[in-house]
């Protein structure tokens, strides 16, 4: 009995991979739009690894948060690289997610039988936003502080119970170190765990209903005598190889940005966020990260606090 058999009869690792990679059939006509799912997993992995490394020097207090990050970037070997990878990684994650979402809309991948695949994806997007927002607060720069304040006041706009809820979330009557520390707990432990669990469910749903494709053909409706969809090819090696090419292309673009323009001229990291948080002065130009901009635009367009917040949430 080989070593693999010994393992597999106790813990079916290779059976699992066979079932979900070698014998998982994906439509043979998937085009480049189908890269973005695996790229999102790549982005998530980059965020988790760089995040663990950042945690080794980051100190979540109002006094030390900003300085600990500056220390990491100036004194710790490759600290600048890991910090910029994490910051650019956040924005890239949203670029990938929005392409992924656009693909689903374009090819109708939200339709029967993929409704729950779509809904779990929407939840994942909201979770990713919550993760990004709490993460943006952690450097405790000017933009961190005031963005935290604006979002907290959106909760405050809920009628009657708004103010107590806002105080409950921020743990203080204003945005303060208490808020910073609980956002730290959310960003580092709570949200990533939920996010990973949701990714798992998203993949379970995907492997149950199978990928949609540009022609909208259900490959499971046309199976050969061996029970294999005639219009499907095994995910491994065909799509793993294809996705690897996409990953290589993505990483080239990603690291070009990391090395040559990590703040993306203020789009990924606003220049105000290189100034420590000051509760007395709001920066003259305050805007959210680009990936939240459409929702923020809705909020600003409606001349009523509550209606604006409602329109933004429904958007």
């Amino acid at each position: 009995m080989s070593f693999n058999q010994w393992i597999n009869s106790r813990l079916p690792i290779s059976d699992f991979f066979d079932q979900h990679l070698r014998q998982y059939y994906a439509p043979k006509n998937l085009n480049f739009w189908y890269f973005f799912g695996s790229l999102a997993i790549l982005c998530l992995s980059i965020q988790i690894i760089s995040g663990i490394w950042l945690l080794m020097y980051y100190e979540p207090t109002a006094k030390t948060a900003f300085d600990s990050i500056e220390f990491m970037m100036r004194e710790v070997p490759y600290g600048w690289l890991l910090r910029y990878v994490h910051a650019v990684g956040a924005s890239s994650f949203f670029v990938i997610l929005y392409f992924h979402l656009y693909r689903a809309l374009m090819y109708g991948s939200y339709q029967r039988p993929r409704e729950l695949l779509w809904l779990s994806g929407v939840l994942l997007l909201i979770l990713a936003m919550a993760e990004a927002y709490t993460g943006y607060v952690l450097p405790w720069g000017q933009m961190s502080y005031w963005a935290a304040k604006v979002i907290m006041n959106i909760f405050g706009a809920i009628p009657f119970i708004g103010e107590p809820i806002m105080h409950l979330i921020q743990g203080d009557y204003v945005v303060s170190e208490v808020t910073l520390q609980r956002f730290f707990a959310f960003h580092v432990v709570a949200f990533p765990m939920i996010l990973l669990a949701m990714v798992f469910l998203h993949l379970v749903a995907l492997h149950t209903v199978g990928s949609n494709n540009p022609d909208g053909i259900e490959i499971k409706d046309n199976k050969g005598a061996d029970g294999i969809p005639k219009d499907g090819v095994p995910f491994h090696p065909y799509f793993t190889i294809k996705d690897l090419v996409a990953a290589a292309a993505f990483l080239i673009i990603f690291f070009t940005i990391v090395f040559y323009n990590p703040t993306m001229d203020g789009l990924f990291l606003e220049k105000e966020n290189f100034i420590p948080a000051n509760p007395l002065v709001t920066p003259p130009e305050i805007k959210p990260s680009w990936y939240l901009a459409p929702y923020y635009a809705i909020l600003r367009a409606v001349p009523n606090q509550l209606l604006g917040a409602l329109a933004m949430i429904s958007g």
Partner: peptide, 13 residues
């Protein structure tokens, strides 16, 4: 792995 390992080394402080 190079930056990830280098990062772990004792720093100047």
């Amino acid at each position: 792995a190079i930056p990830l390992v280098q990062y772990l080394k004792p720093g100047r402080e």
